[in-house]
């Protein structure tokens, strides 16, 4: 074999090894984090891809056929290709609760149109965007979309809610209220006792919970 031929063979060998290694990462569960879009969110590090990314029904050919038929008006319903879009069902499989002060399905009522358009509140993944290594990404002003005209007949706190709203102090909401109300705790009665926005931000980013650790409805894993 000539020197040029040997070099060519070495290139092919090297290329094959790299391709096989790449393929191996898609097959081995422990290596899945390598090709994930980003770091898993808080508490999700041990999940495998398929726990959320479920395969769509049918073979590739069946799915392509169904899509072609749908585009040509030969069938009424479209199908998903490859993997199904991650929806609330996947989250609910571990985070199912009998009680939730803001259950996502509640926002499918027509009157929440603005909140859906701005925040996508009807989907878990709108606030809990996955693969960015945090717990939640709720914007500080999120509460304003539904609670901007809040006036309580018997307001239980020292600075009434409508006063906090008048000065647009939306950052204070989560200082007292746990969004899903899933922690066993007593809500503060004084604004001075509210957790600071920086503490809440740290919690959202994956830090310790200021609301305590005892959950009303723990996840399937007991967390």
């Amino acid at each position: 074999m000539t020197r040029e031929g040997k070099l060519k063979a070495a290139y092919y060998f090297f290329g094959t090894v790299v391709a096989l290694l790449g393929f191996a990462t898609t097959m081995m569960a422990d290596w899945q984090h390598i090709y994930a879009k980003g770091p898993a969110n808080t508490g999700h590090a041990k999940l495998t891809c398929v726990e959320c990314h479920v395969e769509s029904p049918g073979t590739v050919r069946q799915q392509l056929q169904a899509k072609a038929h749908f585009w040509l008006g030969m069938r009424n319903t479209d199908v998903e290709f490859g993997h199904a879009k991650v929806g609330n069902q996947q989250c609910d499989a571990c985070h199912s609760r009998d009680q939730d002060s803001h259950p996502v399905h509640r926002f499918l009522e027509p009157r929440f149109k603005e909140a859906r358009a701005e925040l996508g509140v009807q989907l878990c993944v709108s606030c809990h965007r996955e693969h960015i290594g945090v717990r939640a990404t709720l914007p500080e002003t999120a509460c304003s979309f539904c609670h901007n005209d809040l006036k309580l007949k018997a307001d239980p706190i020292d600075v009434p809610h409508h006063v906090l709203i008048e000065v647009n102090n939306w950052a204070s909401c989560l200082g007292c209220h746990d969004y899903h109300n899933n922690h066993r705790r007593t809500v503060q009665k004084s604004v001075k006792q509210a957790y600071s926005p920086s503490v809440i931000k740290a919690y959202m980013d994956g830090g310790p919970s200021p609301y305590g650790t005892e959950k009303k409805y723990p996840t399937k894993e007991g967390k």
Partner: peptide, 13 residues
């Protein structure tokens, strides 16, 4: 590939 009905088409609900 796209229109020959093999395999069985997915059910149109």
């Amino acid at each position: 590939y796209l229109f020959a009905q093999r395999p069985t088409p997915l059910v149109d609900s």
